[in-house]
Nucleic acid binder design. Structure first.
Lengths: 219, 219
DNA sequence: GGCAACCTGACAGCAAGCTGACAATCAGGG
DNA sequence: CCCTGATTGTCAGCTTGCTGTCAGGTTGCC
């Protein structure tokens, strides 16, 4: 059970970490909105506890951006004042449950467990597309169940394609994701990575739509 | 790892036995409360899975009598209806974790493992990965049963890897865990510790996945 | 056919990681 | 308070294997 707790108040953060850990979660913490967004977008958690009052990027915005990107992990939202409007706002942004401060840790844990249970025990640590499967926890790749060694860069590429498997991803976007847009590479660098991956994975895994981009072939 | 499962529903009992066995436990079963109490009181288990709804002697009563007798093994309680009161009742009776039915076996196993891992001072706290074993009580390390002398820092590193043995742990995360992120060290400090540990433990214990991180071989 | 997008094998540069040596630091004892 | 040994961070030089670039090929589209 992997959990992400987003909370900027150090005291509450410490309590959260203790309680979640005691409840059997492997806990990761952050107090920064940007940081939270990145983690939630790239890692797979079974549960996210999200405080709305954050510096650098508001909690609601973080949540909306996750949902917009198709991330579906259960999110439990914490907020200082539980007004009616705020509650609706939270739910509409994609929160699965909502807990107004102050709250008792026991209740938080109980709700957290309920959420996780409802989500089916574990959010997909295994993502699949056709014959390809990614284990986002152990950073492993397998083709038809057979493990394949890939490098960190190759893995990031696959993970990104997996996350957007519903559409072809244009090379520019991939380049921007793999390297910063500031640090420019030749477009060919990407093609090289793709070629190496295809050699490892075999045919029928990574497809090309000329002019549109790359995609993972569905079953 | 020795486990006792107390469950009167034959179908669930069979599933429990299968799942726990597959997870590496040596499993003993009983469906009777008196029987369970006697076993738990006289034998040493690393884990007990206890259903509350039992004939002849209620699960809660069994648990209370164990605790009253000073038995401290980790107990995971199963119950049909997960109301808040029942939950508190279970915890107060001395349960270490609580799982409402229906549940998925995967979740039970995950929680069971978490319990055993954090059992800490009570039941035998031996964690193993391949040829390596950690005694979390006495902070001792042994390789294939032969004790190895390690320093405090080295031990903390091993313990962290052990706790996350299902995935490669990136150097940044290790650095952050070993030292505070505030107090910055050269990345090389970590490599030095790893090198020293490898010299002590021999090959085939700490592995590297370039670009991903370090891990314990042969979970 | 010609152009542009894309592929691929080879290769060199480079960064991640390893290791031995040494110095700074810490802990404990006199 | 200093001495001593153990621990641990830093440095320098090394190995390894990832990865960007290049050159040349292939494919699809107008």
């Amino acid at each position: 059970m992997r959990a992400l707790a987003v909370e900027d108040d150090p005291r509450i953060a410490a309590d959260l970490q203790a309680a979640l850990t005691a409840a059997g979660f492997r806990v990761e913490m952050t107090g920064d909105g940007e940081d939270a967004w990145f983690l939630g977008d790239t890692e797979d958690y079974d549960l996210v506890v999200l405080d709305l009052g954050l510096p650098s990027l508001d909690g609601l915005a973080v949540l909306k951006r996750w949902r917009a990107n198709g991330r579906t992990m259960p999110v439990l939202v914490l907020t200082a004042r539980g007004t009616w409007q705020e509650r609706v706002e939270g739910i509409e942004a994609g929160a699965d449950d909502y807990l107004p401060k102050p709250f008792r840790m026991e209740e938080l844990i109980a709700r957290a467990r309920a959420l996780v249970r409802r989500a089916g025990g574990h959010a997909a640590a295994l993502q699949e597309a056709g014959e390809l499967s990614l284990d986002t926890n152990r950073m492993g790749v397998a083709i038809r169940g057979v493990p394949v060694q890939v490098t960190a860069l190759e893995y990031r590429l696959l993970a990104y394609l997996m996350q957007h498997r519903d559409r072809p991803v244009p090379p520019t976007e991939l380049l921007e994701h793999l390297y910063g847009d500031d640090d420019a590479r030749e477009a060919n660098a990407l093609e090289a990575v793709i070629a190496r991956l295809r050699r490892k994975l075999g045919p029928g895994v990574i497809g090309t739509r000329r002019g549109f981009g790359y995609f993972l072939e569905a079953a």
